[in-house]
């Protein structure tokens, strides 16, 4: 298994942390992982993305140019990354904020109304976790159990009271995917 992801959205949507959670979970399951953030001025309010590789084999290149999965949280990210997804790959998009449907027909597309579903479980701040839940259900890259254990590692201590909410959001996202 080699999963090469790009996770992209506005700064503040939690795309970096989604990638980190996947990386920690992959590492704890004994897989090889790498995580590369976009960095610099685009971190200050613009579009941010990270590249994540989770693989059973040692990772040759951590640079992701043809993702097996793209997770896009806003319209600019959809426009930029939809064409790059490998044929047969997966595209998950946040349909709460993106006003067009993806055009590709040679990939699997999952629409997640992440902000609405986040609100349903308590806050749209966990929209990223809703999407992550949908992703994990769709690909099975890592287990939900491991992800749950990783939250404490990735979230700063002052946010640990939000772990139950995050778990709820993961579950809600997973329910969306059959």
């Amino acid at each position: 298994m080699v999963e090469e992801l790009i996770i992209a959205g506005f700064g503040g949507q939690g795309v970096m942390v989604m990638g980190q959670i996947l990386s920690y979970a992959g590492m704890h399951e004994g897989k090889n992982v790498s995580w590369i953030p976009s960095y610099g001025p685009e971190m200050r309010g613009g579009t941010a993305n990270c590249s994540v590789v989770v693989s059973d084999e040692p990772i040759a290149s951590p640079i992701v140019t043809e993702p097996t999965t793209a997770i896009v949280m806003n319209r600019p990210s959809l426009d930029r990354f939809e064409p790059m997804v490998q044929p047969g790959g997966l595209l998950i998009y946040n349909s709460s904020l993106i006003d067009r449907a993806p055009e590709r027909t040679d990939i699997r597309v999952i629409a997640v109304p992440a902000n609405e579903l986040g609100e349903e479980v308590g806050s749209d701040k966990v929209a990223n976790m809703v999407v992550l839940g949908a992703y994990i259900k769709a690909r099975g890259t890592v287990s939900f159990e491991t992800v749950g254990q990783c939250l404490a590692e990735v979230l700063p201590a002052r946010r640990h009271d939000l772990i139950p909410l995050n778990l709820e959001a993961l579950k809600r996202g997973a329910e969306l995917v059959k």
């Binding site: 790498s34 995580w35 590369i36 960095y39 951590p62 640079i63």
Partner: peptide, 10 residues
Amino acid sequence: DGVLGQMMEP
């Protein structure tokens, strides 16, 4: 380089 500095790996 920038990738090696910013990248996370185990």
